[in-house]
Amino acid sequence: MEKQIREPHIYRKLFTTCFMISACTFGGGMVIMSLLQKKFVEELKWISQDEMMDLIAIAQSCPGVMAVNSAIIIGYRTAGAAGAFITLIGTVLPPMIILSVISMFYRQFRDNYVIALLLKGMQAGVAAVLIHTTIMMCRNVLKDRRVFSVIMLAAAVYAAVFMGVDIILIILACGCAGGIMTFAEMKKEEGSA
């Protein structure tokens, strides 16, 4: 196990971070994941970019909600099983409270002009966060300056963005390609040694 983060009030920090992100985020798992990445990788620097991308791949390959899985995994990484439980509760609590209240006032909520305007404005902000994360991640993939990385990224982007291929298939294919590449390189090293 990687060294856990030694920090005073780590549980409180994990809880408030996940609670705030979950309470302020509209949209799917990728959006919440972008916010977690911004907070834990870029601001707190508790997790490296490489590690974060591995954790996302793990979160994605488990059943359940991507956003919750990412939060659990970050909690586990930084503060063990107790940390995972804290981030789980922090992430789940806001929607639970909000949905319980809104289920009583849905119609009034939906027809409110100011709320509709705010929601529309927020769409542009969500788009910005996702573009920012895409830039950071592509840079990270390309930082080793290998042709293999460029080809893999181009192929994955083509499949995901233009062909609409199921992301589970892309993950499987990329994992296999990475494994085969490493195996081939190890063989070559053995041969030359």
Partner: peptide
């Protein structure tokens, strides 16, 4: 090696989501 191979997939996944949104 496998994990390194997965990273382009993750980047592409975020990008696909970014394009839609």
């Amino acid at each position: 090696g496998v994990l390194k191979g997965l990273r382009p997939a993750v980047a592409a996944m975020v990008m696909a989501s970014a394009v839609k949104i």
